[in-house]
Amino acid sequence: MEKRRPGLIDPRALPIAVGYLPVAFAFGLSAVAIHLPGWFAVLLSLLVYAGASQFAALHLLASGTPFLAGIVAIWLINLRMALEALSFFRRVDWGHLRPHLSLLLTDETFVAASLGDAMSPAAYVRLVWLPYTAWVLGSLIGVLAGDLLPLLLRHAFGIAIEALFVSLLVGAVRADARTAWAAAAGAAGAILGSPLGGWSLVVGMVLGALAYFLATARAERAA
């Protein structure tokens, strides 16, 4: 039987892209609303491609934060990506392509790419190109045409990324029960770390990884 060729887009990329569009749209809109030039918002999306830190950049610039402090804050918010890149790229053997492809890794594509079998570079590209395009185009549309999308629909699409996380989590827990411990500890860590702002995600990731480590050790002892 002939093997079916994979399409240009990984199906998991669709909800991520759909979720990114309104957020990126809101980002472009917010940048213009605080009188930053449109090119600044689009260039930030094009080159930084990290939502939380981009919104933080708008807040920092609008509140008159010193230039260097603003830059360092953005780096700190994005530091969690080091952990994600380390976790994902140790599983794949893509040679010199590995660091370059890491530039398109986000929280959402990391989660989608990590759960399941190790991917080929082509499969990874099929997953990441559409969310990146949606993010940049969404920012551009936000800058150019703020309120064309009905508000209700814009708000409703805000649930798309969360729903994707739930579906990925359900699939992961069905495959490996230890991931439930990791996810629960990750959630608890994010709640405990909420006073730390952007760092709460890092606290959650560290606690969740520890929980998975302990669950694995316990399972090995029991075996």
């Binding site: 952990l83 976790s87 759960l115 994010a190 709460s200 995600l201 959650g204 990731m205 990884a209």
Partner: peptide, 20 residues
């Protein structure tokens, strides 16, 4: 390696909470 294996699911849990 064992520690890093838990990072994706941990990130899922944390992201669900922060975005909820």
């Amino acid at each position: 390696e064992r520690l890093l294996q838990g990072v994706p699911a941990a990130a899922l849990g944390a992201l669900l909470v922060t975005g909820f």
